[in-house]
Amino acid sequence: MNGWITTLGERFLNFIRYAGGVSVLFVRTIFWVFVPPLKRRQILDQMVKIGVDSLPIVFLTSLFTGMVLALQSAYQMQKMEAKLYIASLVALSITRELGPVLTALVVAGRIGASIAAELGTMKVTEQIDALETLATNPIKYLVVPRFIALFFMLPLLTIYADIVGIFGGYMIGVWRLNILSNLYWDMTWNPLHIKDIVTGIIKAFAFGVIICIVACYEGMRVEGGAEGVGAATTKAVVIAFILIIAADCLFTALFYFGFAF
């Protein structure tokens, strides 16, 4: 019994320590964002790496999601003679949920892992210590450019995912289920409110922050060589996934139910 309580206590303390560490890194990052000068070249490099280089994978994920969503809903809707509503269902599901969440998960897997591995390798090869000895703050030099790039690129990728996902639904709706093209577009735009798109984008800003801070935190506290880097990379992706889903739940409750479940 004693051992069980001790383990539980240790885990709780570790959780508090972790949450504290992540929060401190977040606050320090925000502080350094506003301390000039900004590393424009590095921010641009990161934007290309995070945004432009993610376009193909986000394209494929969103396109197939839109197509699958249309196919799955067609199965039920056709029975009810309501296949026209597939367009609305796809548009709302993609803009409110699947666009921001799937894009964030893809970017967390691709970029979160890369950030944690890169910073982790820098930590074990003493490059982060070297930065400090060269009178350069590692948060300013390493975290801030990634933070700014993720903060702005994830919402842009989400808008791109929304468009591609809706187009995926259109391909199935019009070319496979023979819905008239103009009717499909009408049924896409009519139920769609600006709020649906904006809430998705707001979520994307938050997901960008989560991916960056978790990955940088994991990377910068790596210990134990290559094994440590591998463990940190896995942990960064898993924790970012969990936090993204949890934050999505919170935001959905906030935006659409005002927390009144």
Binding site: T125, E126, Q127, A130, L131, T133, A135
Partner: peptide, 23 residues
């Protein structure tokens, strides 16, 4: 403080065991 430490560090040069060059 951090600022004072950074000013002092500019007086130093350090060669790390693995050189710690930025990849």
């Amino acid at each position: 403080d951090a600022k004072g430490l950074n000013e002092l560090r500019l007086k130093f040069g350090m060669l790390f065991q693995g050189a710690a060059l930025f990849d």
